[in-house]
Design a protein around this nucleic acid. Structure first.
Lengths: 403, 403
DNA sequence: ACTAATTTGTAAATAGCCCTGACGAAATGG
DNA sequence: CCATTTCGTCAGGGCTATTTACAAATTAGT
């Protein structure tokens, strides 16, 4: 279909096999050449030449001999390099900025964050503040022997992929902001993606293993209620990149009108603003009083833990409405699991009873219901890992970076 | 992920390139070797050797010299063979059986159908009747110089793919029926799939071109209301193969209880049985009186065309409820287009007004709304084309048939 | 009609990639 | 100490696509 990406030349085969070697080590852990060959189904000879290239490129490192106790000559253990390229991830939240660096082994090597009231702000100063964090993290990892292979930015809005171009971010008040011309350049290829998408990918890559065993619907609430559909290890983005707008699935035929133009949208009953209003709070003031990623949900979770009846009632209702929307989504997608991520992870203990009840009532066999352990950290980690994954996908950078 | 299917050997590269040549001719029309080379990005030399193999295998045929009028030596035109392998498709409906044969060029070369009351019947006799149709069609195309490369059966139920094993087909009353041991064998690899899935694939392969330009949700109603999600040229099947159950998406919070265990399911308001009841008919009797694929919908369409007020009112209501369910699906999937297929295609003229109104009201920018031109023929054609596609995908059958 | 230009298809030589088979190196176990 | 096992590498070979070159067949221009 896409003639741009050719897959028929020998170089492409080589590229695939280089990536296969790296993923064999990344997924299966450090191993000798012979063991890698067994894992990916190539001969030892072929793996040897592949490994030579990867060692020269600084992506793999030899970690001494592995004495297994079994007879036979021990192999030299290969591991992903912890001094090679690393991925930089950045997050532009409504009220905070964050940056982190992840090495090929998946370890977070540096991170930085600041509170920042970005709602309705000018892009320029925000990006300048973010750039400062990026250079701070960048110099830190450079001192540790790593070199950034790219920077990916998580944005709460719609992003034109590969171009690092924010089409619109309602909660920031941004429209048509091009990140490439700003102060973020200079750390390798600069890319951007939607925050919910990156959170879901983080869950797929480093989160709960069930996400790797089948299709998954990842639900994440920050300001709105978003979700991401993971099929076959990939994100379903839809025509315009809008896929996953769970918050605007109708749950009441003649419900409250919504800013989206519809009525009875899930967000009107289970969204953060709806929850805050239901317990007598002004959403705008609550954001100011409880900033940061997951600030309001942490506050609500605290009150729920204290037994606050209003909050408990609101969360019960939200669980029920979430259950109705997820019933429809499950019938459509038949996912292996539903993952509650982002702010929902913190509130899960009080949402789950009514949510599971509603799902159990309406669905014969409900999918697994999993609470993300990444929580509000997902988008940031996902952004950094997206960069390292792109390195593993095309180790010698022979092709153009399709980030 | 799946280590079973290796993609790194040279034979795989060859296989891909052979398929690329065939699809270049299939999608872009007959062309010379040089033009094919331009289309798929290989050199003329490489294409020549690929074409040699495909000619020898009887998949391509030379169709004389092509005088284009432009300067230069004219090339010998290559076309898909119309005397090579063909695909057999079969359909087990609730009240009919049908078989057709399609050649590599996509032309229907033979077909046969009979009415057959299959609801609640024993599988044995039904399969025997179907087998008779298959052999009839098979001998007809064999006489025309074609040879069947496989048989795919469209079943109104859940199928374990690749094994031709019907897990359950509620409308037939079948459970755990293995087609391979029955009388259908002997026409090449025997496979089966869900009828809605094959209908959607037919739309993708030979239907409206918009289906090939992005993700699509294909809605098809026969007895229930099913749908299929086409992403990236592939079917989203879900964890158990249940994906696309649009009929059980809740559209009323406290609506009618449904056999699925839920309540307020779309099917209770826009399903065939609901429509028949709404105009005062008994669904079971209506099936007997108006058999065949799309029999009831044709009858309802007839009454609607005559201006029958009850029918028009029922269809208006169904359009509205369908609009609510599709609003949710659109928010989740952001499809490029919604395709009304199967029985809905016939009823589209009377569903569309309220359906488009509801979508327009609830969605800022609704996806394209397309009426399938294949209609009730979709599943049967999709089944036959699935076989020919599998031939094109792996022309020399070096790999195992992953149908 | 004749030539120049252009395009097509094929042949020979070349480079890249992986496989087969063989071998030395380095461990275990009796 | 020696047989056994496993690891990594080397040499040779097969397959695939590319490069380069060339003959064949057509159009356009004189």
């Amino acid at each position: 279909m896409t003639t741009t990406r050719r897959l028929h030349t020998q170089q492409d085969m080589r590229r695939r096999n280089l990536a296969a070697v790296l993923y064999a080590v990344a997924d299966g852990g450090p191993a000798s050449r012979a063991r890698v060959a067994d894992r990916i189904g190539l001969t030892r000879t072929a793996v040897s030449t592949l490994v030579d290239d990867l060692l020269a490129a600084g992506l793999l490192a030899e970690a001494g001999l592995g004495h297994s106790g079994a007879p036979g000559r021990p192999g030299t253990v290969l591991a992903l390099s912890d001094r090679g390229p690393c991925g930089l991830g950045a997050e532009i939240g409504v009220d905070h900025l964050a940056v982190c660096a992840v090495d090929l082994r998946g370890r977070v090597r540096a991170r930085a964050a600041v509170d920042s009231a970005n709602r309705g702000s000018e892009p320029g100063p925000v990006l300048a503040r973010l750039a400062e964090l990026v250079t701070r993290v960048g110099t830190e990892v450079t001192a540790a022997g790593l070199h950034p292979a790219g920077l990916r930015v998580a944005v709460p809005g719609l992003v034109s992929r590969g171009h690092a171009h924010v089409v619109q971010a309602p909660n920031l008040g941004w429209r048509d902001v091009d990140l490439t011309t700003g102060p973020l350049a200079g750390h390798g290829p600069l890319t951007a993606d939607n925050e919910a998408n990156l959170g879901a990918l983080a869950e797929l890559w480093i989160g709960d293993p069930v996400c790797r065993t089948g299709d998954v619907l990842h639900i994440s609430a920050e300001i709105g209620i978003g979700s991401a559909i993971l099929t076959d290890g990939q994100l379903l983005r839809g025509n315009r990149g809008f896929a996953g707008e769970l918050g605007h699935v109708p749950v009441r035929r003649r419900g409250e009108p919504c800013a989206c133009g519809g009525r009875g949208c899930l967000e009107q009953y289970a969204g953060e603003a709806a929850l805050l209003r239901a317990v007598g709070l002004d959403p705008a003031r609550a954001v100011a009083e409880h900033p940061g990623p997951g600030g309001r949900s942490a506050y609500l979770a605290g009150r729920a833990a204290d037994g606050d009846r209003d909050v408990l009632r609101a969360l019960r209702g939200a669980g029920t409405d979430l259950g109705i929307a997820l019933t429809g989504a499950t019938h459509l997608l038949d996912p292996h699991a539903l993952v509650l991520g982002g702010a929902l992870a913190v509130l899960a203990p009080w949402l789950l009873p009514t949510l599971t009840a509603e799902l159990g009532r309406r669905l014969g066999a409900a999918p697994l219901l999993v609470v993300s352990r990444l929580g509000a950290d997902g988008p940031l980690l996902g952004a950094a890992h997206a960069v390292t994954r792109s390195v593993l996908d095309d180790p010698l950078r022979t092709g153009d970076a399709r980030l």
